[in-house]
């Protein structure tokens, strides 16, 4: 028997997405997290400007170094963002579905002429909208600070690289939003889903880079007299490290904001033949370099959203 449903699964989608975004924009929880991000961003950029002013060397991409320069003890702006963006996403998504169960609003909303699909997708899009607005505002703020304090406008290529970096950050935040949404459908208690998401965040941002070599050494024995075994080890270690979205994001920011980056893996001397060391890569080459990372993260978003979708569709509505 065909089980064809009538009507569009997108009915009510924009209503839900906009309501979600409006809710987030007015919630104290999000205000706190954004305040944290804003303060650290200003601090990091301000420190970077001080550092840049102190050095006299010529730099073709001075504006980009605004984002990547770190001055002790403060990390750089991108390092802060890589660390804190997941926190924003988790704050946006951890009680997305289970919160509706607990407020007993789910059955009432789903009794309206909409599909469940629209509800979950709307939640996700609403979160993404908030992330997009915040990232854009942050980026403009940093650019403005740079222009004011350095007295120098960003060049055309710098703007494009900056926008590409913005997109990368957006997708990175999207991965974590999808993660928190998955947990919010799997666990009935918002506290549990928040803890689960935060635990995963800690593992991936702090411990994963330590775990990767350990896991790799369990599979590949390094023979000090065999360079190929060392190469295998490095490749495997990198492969494992790239399971973490943090690694992918770091590589992307490196490729986009440091135009001299040529490769992320080990490079052989033979490959450097005829290369002008220290010269920047053209924009198209840098984009090509980070494309696999970006594609991987988009795939992760799609996969995680599918998991959330399947688990939500199978759930009983009764609270």
């Amino acid at each position: 028997m065909p089980r064809q449903r009538e009507g569009s699964p997108f009915t009510g989608l924009s209503t839900i997405a906009l309501k979600e975004a409006a809710d987030h924009m007015t919630s104290a929880r999000i205000h706190l997290v954004l305040l944290l991000i804003l303060l650290t961003a200003i601090g990091a950029v301000y420190a970077a400007i001080g550092q840049i002013k102190a050095t006299v060397s010529e730099d073709q991409f001075l504006f980009l170094s605004l984002l990547t320069t770190a001055r002790d003890p403060l990390p750089s702006f991108v390092a802060f963002l890589g660390f804190l963006l997941p926190l924003v996403s988790i704050a946006l998504g951890f009680d997305g579905i289970n919160g509706e169960y607990n407020r007993r609003t789910l059955s009432r909303v789903l009794a309206q002429p909409i599909y469940r699909d629209a509800f979950l997708t709307g939640k996700f899009l609403g979160g993404l909208l908030v992330i997009a607005i915040c990232l854009l505002a942050l980026w403009l703020l940093v650019t403005g600070m740079g222009i004011l304090l350095l007295g120098l406008p960003p060049g055309g290529e710098e703007v494009i690289r900056g926008l590409a970096f913005l997109l990368a950050s957006f997708v990175y935040a999207g991965v974590w939003l999808a993660v928190s949404l998955v947990f919010s459908t799997l666990f009935r208690s918002p506290a549990t889903s928040a803890l689960a998401a935060l635990a995963l965040w800690l593992i991936f941002t702090i411990f994963w880079s330590m775990l990767a070599p350990l896991i790799a050494s369990a599979f590949v024995q390094i023979d000090p007299y065999d360079p190929v075994s060392q190469l295998n080890f490095i490749e495997l270690q990198r492969g494992i490290a790239r399971i973490s979205p943090q690694t992918l994001y770091d590589e992307m920011t490196l490729g986009l904001l440091n135009p001299t980056t040529r490769a992320f893996g080990p490079v052989f001397t033979s490959q450097l033949k005829n290369a002008l060391m220290g010269s920047p890569l053209p924009l198209s080459e840098s984009l090509r370099l980070v494309w696999p990372q970006l594609a991987g993260m988009i795939a992760a978003v799609v996969l995680l959203f599918t998991v959330a979708y399947v688990s939500f569709q199978r759930q009983e509505i009764r609270a």
Binding site: Q4, E6, G7, T11, R103, R108, A111, P113
Partner: peptide
Amino acid sequence: PLRQPLAVKSRVGYLPDQVGFYDA
């Protein structure tokens, strides 16, 4: 209601047990 849920749900009002609203 399974095949034409939108048509059914637009004609039927539902008041769940212990109905919840967005408190804010």
